[in-house]
Lab assay of single mutants.
Amino acid sequence: RLIESLSQMLSMGFSDEGGWLTRLLQTKNYDIGAALDTIQ
């Protein structure tokens, strides 16, 4: 599930440099909407 969510976020133009996006998705239970809300 992480790989699916991460690949979708990467395709939106986000980077996972340093693993920050992986950690964010894990804390949000791989919910892309919740991750995007946090980023904004």
Score class of each variant (00 low, 15 high):
R1G: 12
R1H: 10
R1Q: 10
R1V: 09
R1P: 10
R1T: 13
R1Y: 09
R1I: 10
L2T: 03
L2S: 06
L2Y: 09
L2N: 05
L2H: 06
L2G: 06
L2R: 05
I3H: 13
I3Q: 15
I3D: 12
I3N: 13
I3G: 12
I3T: 11
I3M: 13
E4P: 07
E4D: 13
E4Q: 12
E4I: 11
E4T: 10
E4S: 11
S5E: 05
S5Y: 10
S5A: 15
S5R: 05
S5Q: 09
L6W: 03
L6G: 00
L6H: 00
L6Y: 02
L6P: 00
L6Q: 01
L6R: 02
L6V: 06
S7D: 11
S7M: 14
S7K: 15
S7H: 14
Q8T: 12
Q8L: 14
Q8A: 13
Q8H: 11
Q8N: 10
Q8S: 08
M9C: 11
M9W: 07
M9Y: 03
M9S: 01
M9R: 01
L10R: 11
L10W: 00
L10Y: 03
L10N: 07
L10G: 06
L10S: 08
S11I: 12
S11L: 12
S11V: 12
S11R: 11
S11H: 12
M12H: 08
M12N: 06
M12F: 08
M12K: 08
M12R: 06
G13F: 08
G13T: 02
G13C: 13
G13D: 02
G13P: 01
G13N: 02
G13I: 09
G13R: 00
F14T: 02
F14P: 02
F14S: 01
F14K: 00
F14D: 03
F14E: 06
F14Q: 02
F14Y: 14
S15P: 03
S15H: 13
S15Q: 11
S15M: 10
S15I: 09
S15R: 06
S15A: 08
D16Y: 00
D16S: 00
D16I: 07
D16A: 03
D16K: 01
D16M: 01
D16L: 00
E17I: 12
E17D: 12
E17W: 10
E17N: 09
E17V: 11
E17S: 09
E17R: 05
E17H: 10
E17F: 10
G18L: 08
G18R: 04
G18C: 14
G19W: 04
G19H: 07
G19F: 07
G19A: 03
G19R: 02
G19M: 04
G19T: 02
W20Q: 04
W20G: 02
W20T: 02
W20M: 04
W20A: 05
W20R: 02
W20H: 04
W20K: 03
W20P: 00
L21F: 05
L21K: 00
L21R: 00
L21H: 01
L21M: 05
L21W: 01
L21Y: 00
L21P: 00
L21G: 00
T22P: 01
T22V: 07
T22Q: 05
R23G: 07
R23H: 11
R23T: 10
R23Y: 05
R23W: 05
L24Q: 01
L24M: 05
L24K: 00
L24A: 02
L24F: 02
L24I: 09
L25A: 00
L25R: 00
L25S: 01
Q26M: 11
Q26R: 10
Q26S: 07
T27W: 12
T27G: 11
T27E: 15
T27D: 15
T27Y: 11
T27K: 13
K28G: 08
K28P: 07
K28Y: 13
K28F: 14
K28M: 15
K28T: 15
K28N: 14
N29F: 10
N29G: 12
N29E: 10
N29P: 02
N29Y: 10
N29W: 09
N29L: 08
Y30L: 09
Y30T: 05
Y30W: 10
Y30H: 08
Y30N: 09
Y30P: 04
Y30S: 07
Y30M: 10
Y30D: 05
D31Q: 03
D31R: 00
D31M: 05
D31E: 08
D31H: 05
I32E: 05
I32D: 03
I32T: 06
I32R: 02
I32Y: 04
G33R: 09
G33W: 14
G33I: 14
G33K: 13
G33Q: 15
G33H: 13
A34I: 08
A34Y: 05
A34G: 07
A34H: 05
A34Q: 12
A34L: 13
A35Y: 04
A35F: 09
A35H: 03
A35T: 12
A35W: 08
A35M: 05
L36A: 04
L36Q: 03
L36R: 02
L36S: 01
L36F: 06
L36Y: 06
D37E: 15
D37G: 08
D37R: 12
D37K: 13
T38P: 02
T38V: 14
T38K: 08
T38S: 14
I39M: 07
I39H: 02
Q40K: 15
Q40R: 15
Q40Y: 14
